[in-house]
């Protein structure tokens, strides 16, 4: 992280050039701690669910440390089965994360002034929460390029530690249905759906997704209906798009 690299070339988004310093990373870390605490609650939940799905504490932790994508990980646990439907798990993770393309692209005006290692290293810890914080920071005229890395490290730390906690706790519960925990995943998805709802314009693509998924669930083996439903929803949205 150390050295300060300042490039002189101007950019479209800000007049100052982007820096990459320890101070910038620290600023991001501190700004993100309250948000990371919220993420930790979600991490505990993920740990419990991962354990219920049959992953060990070490495996759940490894997943949080290397994948670093909350929604995609919870969804992967939702489709996890014995034997593991590898193609569906990896495919669903990829598709759910495709929105990161947009987030990464939005960073480009600032990040193209950083070295490849700084830029491509930072995006490893990019999550929805610290991306939003970083965009606020950069758009307000501060050119701390290390903000994403610092805030991402805060998220990563809390996410991994809370996963360990949840996974350890999840292993203690041996009869999930007794505590209603078998319903937990459904409840989590309902809650996430409510949070993702952005208004009436989502209704048609969501209904199409639900219809296609519901219709193909029995026709197709495995859990491919999830990908088909999701892609159908996105397809309809693209067809309907009118600027």
């Amino acid at each position: 992280m150390g050295g300060e690299t300042t490039s002189q070339q101007g950019d479209a988004a800000g007049s100052e050039s982007t820096t990459f310093s320890l101070a910038g990373a620290w600023k991001g870390f501190i700004a993100c701690v309250p948000v990371a605490l919220g993420v930790a609650g979600y991490g505990v939940l993920f740990g419990v669910l991962a354990r219920q799905a049959g992953l060990s504490v070490a495996e759940s932790t490894l997943m949080s440390a290397t994948v670093v994508a909350g929604a995609a990980q919870v969804i992967a646990i939702g489709v996890w089965d014995q034997p593991i439907p590898v193609a569906v798990v990896v495919g669903t993770v990829f598709v759910v994360n495709l929105r990161y393309l947009l987030m990464g692209a939005s960073l480009r005006p600032w990040f193209e002034e950083l070295s490849p290692l700084q830029a491509y290293g930072s995006v490893f810890v990019m999550a929805d929460e610290n991306w939003a914080l970083t965009m606020q920071e950069l758009r307000s005229g501060n050119s701390a390029g290390a903000f994403l890395l610092g805030s991402g490290i805060a998220i990563w730390l809390f996410w991994v530690l809370s996963t360990v906690l949840g996974a350890a706790a999840g292993g203690v519960i041996d009869e999930p249905a007794t505590y209603g925990l078998d319903f937990m995943l459904t409840a989590v998805f309902v809650t996430i759906a409510v949070g993702l709802w952005e208004g009436r314009s989502d209704l048609v693509p969501w209904l199409v997704a639900a219809g296609v998924a519901g219709g193909t669930a029995h026709l197709l083996g495995g859990q491919w209906y999830i990908l088909f439903g999701g892609l159908a929803g996105a397809g309809v949205e693209m067809i309907r798009y009118d600027g």
Partner: peptide, 24 residues
Amino acid sequence: LSPRVESGLEILPGAIIVSILAPE
């Protein structure tokens, strides 16, 4: 990426969640 493609990518997470929930 055209705005059309962007709108499709943005809808994906919600559409996937709904696709998991519906059959369940």
